[in-house]
Amino acid sequence: MAPPAEGSTSEPFEDYSPVLNFVIWVLTGYATIFISLRLWGKHHRGRRLWWDDYLLIASWVALFLGCIFQTVDTGLGFGRSQHSVPVENIEIARLLSTIAGFFLILAAAWSKTSFGLTLLRLTQTDGLLKKLVWFAIWTTNICITGSCIIQWAHCWPLDRVWRQEVPGGKCLPLDLMNGYNMFVAAYSGTIDVMLALLPCKIFWPLMMKRKEKIGITIAMGTGIFAGIASFMKILAIHNVNRPRAGPEHVVVLMALGTAEGAITIVAVCMPVLRTLLMQDSSHLLKSSLLNHIP
């Protein structure tokens, strides 16, 4: 993901890097708190980690690395007006933004996969719903893997991805890349919404208290916000590739990419944390009642 095209020195100076750093680290911090509580809750209850936990940890690592590369990139001029960036920093800034975007894509893919696996494990669902969740997991990973490949392989030789002045070589048509990335954003957002709504279908027929059904549906339904972030990326991808795109458009795209992975991580953690809180509350209530028995 390259910085905007060069402008003239008469352009006004714009610096959105502080905003980007604030947003991405708040989102990552939020995800860090929730995944830490999830892992602590598993340890507290003596539960072993499963594949969804390992994928969630990998997703958080990718998210964290993506934020680190973005922050380093802002120190080189990413998020500022092109004419204010030192010429010697432009190529390395493009490379770092590409690496950051790559890790954010991985964070989104792995967190969605973890969400699907958590849903399968919590519900023990069979039949059509189980096939639907597996379909969502596989197709999402296939589509996002395509984005990862395009991220690096859309130009040849490879270094032309970040060194646009390299003579010779070829790149995929920009319209083709943009079209595919918009499709992936739309499909990914659709899968987020579908996975967030599936608990309504799965839990409501079960013999559970009404408030428990509402609670777990809302907890897992937070994944809808990841879908919203993914849908917003469609417009952001369009804006960042316009001829006169500004630094604010690139910053918005990177922030939305960070938000998509971070929100999904939080959504995956919510059901486990809710179960832990309910068990602890029940234990405290029983202890309080026992203390008042003569």
Rank of each mutant, 00 (worst) to 15 (best):
T9W: 13
T113V: 09
L104D: 01
S84D: 12
P3G: 09
L256P: 05
I90R: 05
F13A: 14
W25Q: 09
Y187F: 10
F135P: 08
A108P: 00
L289H: 09
A267E: 05
W25D: 08
G223L: 04
P3T: 14
T32H: 04
S84W: 10
I191S: 00
N181C: 01
L95H: 05
I99H: 06
M270K: 09
L174Y: 00
F203V: 14
F102R: 01
L76V: 08
V19R: 05
S84R: 09
A5V: 11
S282N: 13
Y180G: 00
M270R: 07
A245M: 11
I150E: 04
L96N: 07
V85A: 12
T125R: 05
V19F: 05
W152Y: 04
T118L: 15
S287I: 11
A226W: 00
D15V: 10
Q70G: 09
Q279N: 13
L37G: 01
I228C: 10
C143L: 12
L197V: 02
S8G: 13
T125F: 06
L49V: 06
A186G: 12
W40Y: 15
L197C: 03
I265N: 02
K201I: 14
S288F: 13
Q82N: 14
S84K: 10
R242T: 15
A5F: 14
T190Y: 09
L273H: 07
E14L: 13
A93M: 14
H283E: 14
R121F: 02
I218F: 08
N241S: 02
I202N: 02
T275W: 00
L285V: 12
N178K: 07
F22G: 14
L172F: 09
K112F: 00
F22P: 06
L195R: 00
P247Y: 07
V87R: 12
F135K: 11
L63I: 09
P205H: 02
F13L: 13
D175L: 07
L235C: 00
W40G: 14
I35E: 03
H43W: 07
P157Q: 07
L273K: 05
I142Y: 00
G127T: 11
E248I: 06
R163V: 05
V240N: 02
C143P: 01
A267P: 06
V268W: 03
T123S: 15
V251I: 15
E248D: 15
A236R: 01
K131W: 15
P18I: 02
L56Q: 03
G41R: 03
Y16C: 04
K201L: 15
G189Q: 05
I33C: 03
G169N: 09
R210E: 15
T113S: 08
